[in-house]
Amino acid sequence: MNTSETAVTTEAAHDDHDHPSDAKYIQIALLLGIITAAEVATYFVDIGVALIPVLMIMMVVKFFYVASWFMHLRFDSPLFTKFFVAGLILATTVYLVFLTVFEFWSKG
């Protein structure tokens, strides 16, 4: 949290200029749609042991694109990213430990 250097900074975080164009948004939506199609395809095509890792990677990519482009995290104040990522990381680790204590992974 180094956003505090001095009290009244100017509107540093409000840089509307480099916001992406509508075309860019549509491109990203297309990409997301294609990934979703690929995800659904795994339900019909057997890809063996690669299935779970591949699904996870596609999920993370979709998540990342929505968060960084549609939610503007890549253009906005890093403070927002910090709060969101803090929540995400905390939730992921705490609940992974939680499931581990329940021996979830060996139960399948």
Binding site: M1, T3, S4, E5, T6, A7, V8, L79
Partner: peptide, 11 residues
Amino acid sequence: ILNMRAPGMTL
């Protein structure tokens, strides 16, 4: 706390 500190009051 994050947004309303007086001028000069860093964290």
